[in-house]
């Protein structure tokens, strides 16, 4: 199964050098173990653009769809054999990046 791990924060690019080192080490390990699919830090929500092209002419709107204090500041996409393995990975990820995480399986 693949699942999305969203990093919850109220700022972006806020990891300390120590956290960055821990995250890099964690990433290297899960790449080696075959659990890594994707990882990346996101720019601030104010850099977002909403696109609505349902009606034939694309409408662009500046800014994120939802303004909120807390938002997704980065994400992992991970691969695990079952829910328990996923849970272990995410528990460790929350520790190394020192943030709350939201986990949700892909279909």
């Amino acid at each position: 199964m693949q699942f999305l791990v969203s990093v919850l924060d109220d700022k972006t690019n806020s990891a300390t050098p120590e956290e960055m080192t821990a995250i890099t080490a964690f990433n290297e390990r899960i790449i080696a173990d075959g659990n890594w699919v994707f990882a990346g830090g996101l720019a601030a929500p104010s850099a977002a653009t909403v696109v609505d092209n349902r009606a034939g002419e694309a409408i662009f709107t500046d800014g994120p769809y939802l303004e909120s204090k807390e938002y997704i500041a980065g994400l992992w996409i991970m691969q695990a054999d079952d829910l328990d393995a996923a849970r272990d990975l995410v528990t460790e990820a929350s520790k190394v990046c020192n943030r709350r995480l939201e986990v949700r399986p892909f279909l």
Partner: peptide, 10 residues
Amino acid sequence: TRAKAKIKAA
């Protein structure tokens, strides 16, 4: 300022 940041980041 926000616009300049968006132009750069995005």
